[in-house]
């Protein structure tokens, strides 16, 4: 499992960096849209923390989307 994780992690890192260097450059001042609030990766912190908490306590999966699981007595 650990070897598998290392490989997947290395693959993801290399792949994404290749992808990044292959992307057309978007100048910082052309990124106005990307900085808009409607584009945020996460919804507001309180909403996100409760939604994650509920989903991970009702489902067998946890983690993903930039966060680790754990921290409550609701064994899934």
């Amino acid at each position: 499992m650990n070897k598998g994780i290392t490989r997947v992690a290395a693959g993801l890192l290399c792949g994404s960096l290749l992808l990044a260097s292959g992307c057309a450059q978007v100048a910082p001042w052309q990124r106005g849209h990307l900085g808009s609030d409607v584009m945020s990766w996460d919804s507001n912190a309180l909403k996100r923390s409760l939604d994650d908490h509920i989903h991970s306590s009702k489902e067998a999966s946890s983690g993903g989307f930039g966060a680790a699981g754990g921290g409550c007595g609701c064994n899934g």
């Binding site: 910082p28 001042w29 052309q30 106005g32 900085g35 808009s36």
Partner: peptide, 20 residues
């Protein structure tokens, strides 16, 4: 596609801007 043209094109709307 200059920042200025985009600000003008988005007139009426709050536009995010950088420090410069």
């Amino acid at each position: 596609d200059s920042v200025l043209s985009q600000l003008n094109a988005r007139a009426g709307l709050a536009c995010p801007i950088d420090a410069e």
